[in-house]
Nucleic acid binder design. Sequence first.
DNA 1: CCCCAATAGTTAGTTGCCTAATCACCAAGA
DNA 2: TCTTGGTGATTAGGCAACTAACTATTGGGG
Lengths: 173, 173
Amino acid sequence: MTQRPEADPAAPSLDQARRQIARYGLTADPQAFLVAARLMTAGARLGQAGEVHFGRFGLSTGRYRLLADLEDHGGEKSPSQLAATLGVSRATVTGLVDGLEREGLVARRPSTEDGRGNVVILTARGADKLRELAPEHFARMQALVGGLTVEERSTFLDLLARVVAGIDALTED
Amino acid sequence: MTQRPEADPAAPSLDQARRQIARYGLTADPQAFLVAARLMTAGARLGQAGEVHFGRFGLSTGRYRLLADLEDHGGEKSPSQLAATLGVSRATVTGLVDGLEREGLVARRPSTEDGRGNVVILTARGADKLRELAPEHFARMQALVGGLTVEERSTFLDLLARVVAGIDALTED
DNA sequence: CCCCAATAGTTAGTTGCCTAATCACCAAGA
DNA sequence: TCTTGGTGATTAGGCAACTAACTATTGGGG
């Protein structure tokens, strides 16, 4: 775990941003840089922490999300649908299902409606795994935002949504 | 690019969180779940958008960060130092430097002080690449938070920092 | 003074993600 | 009917990150 350096690793400082802006003679707001950088770092950190958490149960974030989505959909869904709701490519779903199938947490069955299609089904073992995971998982989620009041959480969600809208605007062009 | 599904892919809904909590008979706040999930999604989205952005210049986020850190440090740094400030493992730095060296953007040179050590140096081509990238990069950063007022940005940074503190608390145990 | 633990860097192997190419199958139009 | 384009899933190949194990070298303690 890179043995925890003194301050915050991977979190670019405001100074560094200022230096970069100055070096190229740009007219950018260092604070904007900071918001973007911190958000990216926070997301990465959260993802990493989740990976460790799920790792303790022999899963990964991607595999857990697939399992949870499957259960939320009645325990049966096509790879394409999974890819769409998880926001990943179909190829990635193939890989995730491969792993989960090896562990016996899901199974593949040919679709009865479409000769090309598959259906991924949640096995009993898969459902057990989710049940085993749930209490700790939700407790962690809750602990995460424990430092924020209910109003602050709303504010945070609002601001976050507007930044995400900014990402979308950037992505479209 | 998964062809942009109707709403927000990969962003779990409040309803879904409620269903999961109900299914296991837990006493968790769905809003907390939502904050954590959205933050993770936002971070991933931002990272992805950055990857696309840097890809247009033949780089990746990791390679860009290495290059930028190198320049900020006078254009010369050891792999271990790079790993520490970038917050990644030394093995990852080896891979990043391999790629950048192939492109001629950095070079490796044995350390004069430590027989085990290397020094990664930023080449003229590497510096050019950074110069080429900078205007668009900072413009994008700025556009990202364009929807927020200056006060809102401060608020956002504050709330984000407190959530990150929550992550740290979770990670320690 | 020499040995041995610590450190620098690389390599090997795994995972998750991507795109592009391929194969199978469906469905609609000439 | 036959062909052709679209769609479902997989495979192949690539990148970035990780851990673990290895090589080489350093430097301090017996």
